[in-house]
């Protein structure tokens, strides 16, 4: 029994297919092509071989950006893998008012990176809330340069990213926790296993798959960071220009009246290969898991 004419599927998919071709497939190919040219926004350009990649390799800003990305990942991955899990456990039980708490914990996710970065920028100001609190409580006697020191600025952006990400990953864990077997928990509790022991021996193995997926997501997102650093440190990356991310360099290269689209594309291709590393790791792990079982 035929349920439709042969052209119906294609007709219905037409909008999505146009967008797939125009804004996904073509830009992917074109980014690679552009990266081998010296195309500028207004003046055009021509093929220049690997020159952009040679420039990229010797660009000190790229080194700073890669170093910053690594620091971002090393701190964000463990924190955002475990804290949201604890948070999900906290809001898992349906006690009175829990919907309110869940919604409020999700607020930082809903807010744009620009608004929350502006909020944090005011708190981290030389004369802002944090400095005033630290000084009145006597922890420090001098102003802490959260926004002007090369490393403190990076750490501030990381703290902001962790704070903003908590609710997002909490939500991912919430659905995973539904599949953790309660009878195991009960049996372990009867056998005298405490909360901490049950967390490590039952909850964590129960959400292992989600946990791996989430840590890969965090790593990829750490490589894509832009707005947080751009707002906290300014467009050029802090006082010394060292607090840049890879995406900030893409934006810097491409903006201005005659943006260097070719060079910006080379940085984009480099970014793609970086983000592919955690994804490859994920597929490897999945394959191994399938072979085991």
């Amino acid at each position: 029994m035929r349920s439709h004419r042969f052209y119906t599927p294609w007709l219905l998919m037409l909008p999505a297919l146009v967008w797939l071709a125009l804004f996904s497939v073509w830009p992917a190919i074109n980014t690679i092509t552009l990266s081998f040219t010296n195309v500028h926004q207004l003046t055009g350009g021509h093929y220049i071989g690997f020159k952009n990649y040679w420039l990229l390799w010797h660009d000190p800003h790229i080194r700073d950006a890669v170093l910053n990305t690594i620091v971002f990942m090393v701190i964000c991955v463990p924190l955002l893998t475990f804290l949201p899990l604890l948070l999900a456990l906290l809001v898992q039980r349906n006690i009175r008012g829990i919907a309110f708490f869940r919604t409020a914990f999700y607020f930082p996710v809903i807010a744009s990176a620009v608004t929350v970065a502006l909020i944090w920028k005011w708190m981290l100001d030389d004369r802002g809330l944090f400095n005033n609190l630290l000084q009145t409580m006597g922890f420090v006697h001098k102003t802490v340069p959260f926004l002007t020191d090369r490393w403190l600025l990076l750490l501030s952006a990381i703290a902001l990213t962790v704070w903003k990400g908590l609710g997002y990953y909490m939500l991912l864990y919430m659905s995973a926790l539904g599949s953790v077997r309660r009878d195991l928990h009960e049996a372990a509790a009867v056998d005298g296993a405490g909360t901490v022991r049950r967390f490590w021996s039952i909850t964590v193995p129960g959400v292992r798959g989600t946990m791996i997926l989430i840590s890969v997501l965090i790593a990829v997102n750490a490589m894509r960071v832009f707005s947080e650093l751009y707002i906290l440190g300014g467009a050029t990356g802090g006082v010394g220009g060292q607090d840049v991310s890879i995406v900030m360099l893409v934006q810097q290269a491409a903006s201005g009246s005659d943006g260097r689209l070719g060079y910006a594309s080379a940085i984009s291709v480099f970014l793609f290969f970086l983000t592919a590393i955690p994804l490859l790791f994920l597929t490897r792990l999945n394959k191994n898991n399938q072979e085991e079982s």
Binding site: P9, M13, L20, L22, F23, S24, V25, W26, P27, A28, N30, T31, L34, V39, Q41, V220, M223, R224, F226, V247, V250, A254, L261, A264, S265, S268, V269, L271, F272, T275, A276, L279
Partner: peptide, 28 residues
């Protein structure tokens, strides 16, 4: 259908930032 679905899934590994320059050039 299978092939098309594969293409849709494959686009997921591309972070939006990677193709942003090419999209910018196209829009301009």
């Amino acid at each position: 259908r299978k092939l098309l679905l594969g293409v849709f899934v494959a686009t997921l590994i591309l972070p939006a930032e990677v193709t942003i320059i090419s999209k910018f050039q196209m829009i301009t």
